[in-house]
Nucleic acid binder design. Sequence first.
DNA 1: ATTAATATTTAGTTTAGTCTAAAAAAAATA
DNA 2: TATTTTTTTTAGACTAAACTAAATATTAAT
Lengths: 219, 219
Amino acid sequence: MLSFVEENYLKAIYHLSLNGKQEVSTNALAEEMRTTPASVSDMIKKLSQKSVVSYKKYQGVNISEDGRRLALHVIRKHRLWEVFLVEKLNFTWDQVHEVAEQLEHIKSPLLIQRLDEFLGHPKYDPHGDPIPDEHGNLIEKHRQPLDALSIGDQGVMTAVDDSSSSFLKYLDKMEIGIGSNIKVIDFIEFDGSMDIKVDDDKTLTVSSTVAQNILVAID
Amino acid sequence: MLSFVEENYLKAIYHLSLNGKQEVSTNALAEEMRTTPASVSDMIKKLSQKSVVSYKKYQGVNISEDGRRLALHVIRKHRLWEVFLVEKLNFTWDQVHEVAEQLEHIKSPLLIQRLDEFLGHPKYDPHGDPIPDEHGNLIEKHRQPLDALSIGDQGVMTAVDDSSSSFLKYLDKMEIGIGSNIKVIDFIEFDGSMDIKVDDDKTLTVSSTVAQNILVAID
DNA sequence: ATTAATATTTAGTTTAGTCTAAAAAAAATA
DNA sequence: TATTTTTTTTAGACTAAACTAAATATTAAT
Ligand SMILES: [Mn+2]
Ligand SMILES: [Mn+2]
Ligand SMILES: [Mn+2]
Ligand SMILES: [Mn+2]
């Protein structure tokens, strides 16, 4: 049985080993966890002891199959709770993450099974992230950062890469959300900003940073 | 801000100061918390520091007004979650307590406000216990242990005094629950057991222990 | 009012998780 | 290759919450 601190480390290791590939460095993990490399060194020894990661000194850490399963279980709970908060309790998508960080650590298989049923077995959370099933399988929808598209390309927004409240509120104000149709009208070399047309309606300019964090599917 | 361990101590102190009146002894608290008197001694110093209890050495501990408010807030959350689990997730009344023990420590004012709305501002939990409002006010329904009634008396079951799974499952099997009409047919001096008629229908015998834990309202 | 029994507190450890400072290894650079 | 820089680990301390054993205070009993 993992403590909730251990669960959080494992989640971070899982996320980092997706982006950065395989081994996760002590420093990267320390940054992600907002703690010190010394603390991380201690913790990965514990996690290694529990065989949820494998670890050789100075070689970074690799998540194990067991670890991956556990991480995905916590992520499943996190995302199901986010759906619950939005669908049933009328939270906005920028209000759910903090609360889900707490709820994801509740231990009760029955609770999650019933919550999943209650929500109608949702496949995606409010930010467009896929919800792993009880076996850890997830259907990753095609997703590409908006700033990778060229002028004339268009796609449907499927997710955000940044779930910070400030970014999500900005999108709300611009009336951009999951499902919006986005077409690239112009690309400004100078600063990487883009002119886009949303839902064949309004045209607006978004910064390079914004474009990087909007994920779209091109069909 | 209290840790979840401190919240549990405070809840226990609150409960004990209702039954046993005012001061709570170190030993009673240790037993309730399933820990040692030494640990309790340490903890009540901490709670006293945070002014949620008042405490003079060897004199037991008294909950403060602040402490009472905090305890009732945790109890409010516990009971609202129990209602949610039964009403929305189809848990049985004997399955909810353990999970609610975890959920009651989630910190989010918005969550509780919305949950309360979602549930339609329930006044009682699945065990018949009153749910404090956001200010800590609660409407204690009239409740009296069944074994205090005399032959011929009757009342409506309003709550249980023991929320253990085994007791609740027994009641389910006997088809006795909150709202059942119970009439005392006979009282056996020898062991304190009772013959009762439930809902003017079936007659059955319950032990003294069972009778103590069924709470009824006489009108 | 002493003495005995019980309740409570203190002292000293333990474990989980964190930190800073220092040592050691690995990687980068000259 | 030798040196410098960066990364990682170790050492030593700290806090929260627990425990056992010992000391002390309170209460009960003679
Ligand atoms: Mn989230
Ligand atoms: Mn999400
Ligand atoms: Mn309960
Ligand atoms: Mn209850």
